[in-house]
Design a protein around this nucleic acid. Sequence first.
DNA 1: CCCTGATTCGC
DNA 2: GCGAATCAGG
Length: 178
Amino acid sequence: MMDAGATWTDERVELLKKLWTDGLSASQIAAELGNVTRNAVIGKVHRLGLSGRAKDAKPAASAAARPRKATRAPSAPAPIAPQPHTGNVVIAPIAMQPAVAETEAFVDEDVAIPMSERVTIMDLRESMCRWPMGDPTKPEFRFCGARSITGLPYCTHHARVAYQPVADRKRERKLARA
DNA sequence: CCCTGATTCGC
DNA sequence: GCGAATCAGG
């Protein structure tokens, strides 16, 4: 039988690295990988040593979490060379292939979304992507089901497809809320 | 409240 | 090695 897929195969690790360096958030990566939580993704990212991405001088080191004893080493020095990402624009894989033809867009949609968690209308929740998948008249009809952007009916990926302006790759929660 | 990554520690 | 729980912060 197929394993639960919750295993870090080479392919998954590769995809993880790619998405992470592309600037996607851990939860989004988890959603695309499927069968993993964002915690799992973050944990793996750290184990791989590619944490930190390209941010610098944010919170003077990690004055963040220290709930338990600090008996352990203060983490690795992260020898990865920081990307020359000036701000945080750029990236956006769509920039490489703009929505030229709808055909392309559809292909991209199907391929780029393993999203192993399509849901029926029964399982569709408020914060789930309502992007339709398949023929609504058929019983196989499903919704994307990924985490939708707060205030919007779609996940980041589908929102990008749904709304022509490629302008913001970033998830603008503030805007969505207002 | 939504989200983000960081860290620890039991498994 | 893995990831849930927890933390700190936006």
